[in-house]
Design a protein around this nucleic acid. Structure first.
Lengths: 236, 236
DNA sequence: ATGTGTGAACTGGTTCACAGCC
DNA sequence: GGCTGTGAACCAGTTCACACAT
């Protein structure tokens, strides 16, 4: 079974480790936002940024930002702030973005095609190297330079092309099967857009994005605003 | 059913209130998943379901499910379980799905077009009645029976067509402007796909979906898995 | 016997407030 | 002065375990 991480190599090292082994999940969720804000700042020529300023642009509390950053071994200068460029590099390193991840998208309906062409992926360190579908009408089609292949070739491609993230954009009915294919081929990170819960073995990370769920949550707030008085429903 | 009609505050009322006024955010997030699982069950002919079973299909702890349900005034029968159909109806009522929400999508690039045609919206009680863009090359185009209009007509349409949810699928640069338009037109629920933090007044609910962020979170886990095992761990 | 409903314990996450360094 | 780093207080969310209804 998937060996549960056992990085015994650096246990004796006495230094304040830069290693970000087990960050709280809540912290990890916020890192990409920090990174994006920092990129915007450095692009604008900013060199140093205070936790107060950065937190404001990310919509979070400054104390939380500082705690998050200290948890990953990043450090600012007291009285000054953080070096924006260095901090961005550090966060990118913690997130493992230094070498591009190789992504396969399975299911090239409207959503899958949109994902395949989504500039935010390539812009932020993700190479979409594989597109797969079961529909002969789509197989062979070229999307921004990547040809759609038969899903039967998925396992081979995962091995040969070092794909390490699978994005499932199939209909619900096919999602679990595709997940099984990915897992069998050795993929341990899956992003699932199908509206269903996937069963995967331990050690495989699955994140689910259900577009309709987001609308339903908004619907709840909308519904309860219109019930009686208005409510401060500003959620994140 | 769902007598959630009264909008009056009920602090003095001694009865076990059916009111789902301020549900914990964590509970609200899970309701759509419960609803989806229940729909699947009723479609399969199931009449009664235990918290244990339902929780398993939703991937949550059964005690949490029971607590969630009791918090919205739903009730099962001790020793038996929950009536699947009645529970589904009740949750739908709490989420405000009894009358379809009217959705506008702004920005019809690849992602916006995919959203416009996403079957999960109409299937789950959302009417996409408005499509808007600023690009003359897209305005006028017909997407599954809905014509793309000039974003200049957005405010008018919001008022005339009772649009109450806005979905922003524009590039980052336009997102805040569109959000302002929506807010000015009276929309208080926004789903934002642009990778930026929107500034909105109190009382406006914004949910953000950043597709790249999800990949970055997966990247983190992937990165830290491979710190322990350096070869791609194709373990079965 | 079975499975809900819920107080109580627990875990994780956020905010506060201030000591310490620049 | 200004701002980071962090213990302590606080709060939300989750799990446990069991009384109680059917």
């Amino acid at each position: 079974m998937t060996t549960t991480g056992e990085g015994t190599e650096s246990e004796l090292v006495p230094t304040p480790v830069t290693k970000a082994a087990d960050l709280p999940a809540a912290t990890v969720r916020r890192l990409p936002e920090y990174l994006r804000a920092l990129s915007a700042l450095t692009d604008a020529g900013v060199e140093t940024v205070s936790s107060e300023t950065l937190a404001a642009t990310c919509g979070v509390n400054s104390a939380m930002l500082r705690k998050d950053l200290s948890q990953l071994g990043a450090s600012g200068m007291r009285g000054v702030g953080y070096n924006a460029a260095a901090l961005a590099t550090h966060i990118a390193g913690v997130l493992g973005l230094t070498d591009d991840s190789r992504v396969a998208i399975i299911g090239l309906g409207h959503l899958g095609q949109a994902l395949a062409r989504y500039p935010g992926f390539s812009n932020r360190g993700f190479d979409v190297v594989g597109l797969f579908d079961a529909d002969q009408g789509i197989i062979g089609k070229d999307l921004d330079g990547v040809r759609v292949r038969d899903v039967a070739l998925l396992a081979e491609a995962v091995r040969d092309e070092g794909i390490n993230i699978g994005v499932i954009a199939t209909p619900e009915a096919a999602a679990q099967h595709v997940a099984d294919l990915l897992v069998d081929a050795g993929v341990t990170s899956i992003l699932n857009f199908a509206p269903c819960v996937l069963a995967v073995p331990e050690g495989v990370a699955v994140r689910k994005v259900d577009l309709a769920v987001e609308l339903q949550i908004l619907s709840f707030h909308e519904h309860h605003k219109t019930l009686g008085r208005q409510e401060t429903g500003t959620v994140k």
